[in-house]
Write a protein that binds this DNA or RNA. Structure first.
Lengths: 146, 146
DNA sequence: TATTGTTATACTCTATAACTATA
DNA sequence: TATAGTTATAGAGTATAACAATA
């Protein structure tokens, strides 16, 4: 009779990926909570801050790897918190640019520092070179054409 | 006025971790669905198959990094599918050992092969040495004492 | 008194379909 | 007809608290 031949579960990359991701997301969410943010809303805020000319929600969804319908809700939250505004685009009246407010930029700064500090607990055992390698590998996994 | 100074979102390890994890979990779940499993139920089944003497649900929760109350529901599913059984422990009548059935071991084999194949899409760009490095780093992240 | 398994509950994340207004 | 935004809904994952049986 065939007995379990596969690799041990604790060595499975999918399993490790989801566990490690959970650790980091948990730590980050705990730090962001003091600033009224979660990982997902924070991500939207940061992308909005990075884009010089503003981003519409469709572009945001693409960068975030989320469905546009989810982005609507996340932007709603940020608007309610006064951290971003929806601005009418000049060229296309369908699109709405997501632009950070002055307060949004300030909160993004403070929240970013808190998140960076919090993530040092789960990531503390990795050196800078390792983090670069990890970043590179994760980017390739994420962008692998399915 | 202070402008966004933090690292770009697309380079944030937490962000990349959750996106890459999502990719792999999605691909794995799609492959496991044909066998009536998801990543979480599959993980329980594999751990149960690996333990020679059976595992109780508390031990299972520890290995999986889940709350014991979640393990109850996952084991319920596997029992309903005929893939594992809850057996009374000899030494402690509180504990219930989770033991795979013969069918459970067969399904674990087939599902494991399907999952391994499916995960090649998101992980295909990584060589064997890189996967070893990734495994090592993710393990250290997961086990970092919070 | 502490621990195992269990039930219950609520919240977040994810996935999908359908609708509106513009193009 | 196609696309941007929106609404709605359902399922899966996560987090807690409380309880019964047993140690």
């Amino acid at each position: 009779m065939e007995v379990c031949m596969g690799q041990p579960m604790a060595d499975d990359l999918g399993f490790l990926l989801s566990r490690a991701s959970g650790q980091v997301v948990r730590a980050t969410n705990a730090a962001l909570a003091e600033h009224g943010l979660r990982v997902r809303t924070y991500s939207v805020l940061v992308f909005a801050c990075e884009a010089a000319d503003g981003l519409n929600q469709r572009e945001l969804a693409g960068f975030l790897g989320l469905d546009p319908s989810q982005v609507v809700l996340l932007v709603d939250e940020l608007v309610a918190a006064g951290l971003v505004e929806r601005q009418a685009a000049e060229t296309d009246r369908r699109t709405r640019l997501v632009v950070p407010t002055a307060q949004g930029r300030r909160v993004r700064e403070a929240a970013g520092e808190a998140a960076d500090a919090a993530v040092e607990v789960p990531l503390g055992l990795l050196g800078d070179a390792e983090r670069d390698r990890l970043r590179d590998m994760l980017t390739r996994i994420w962008t692998a054409t399915g």
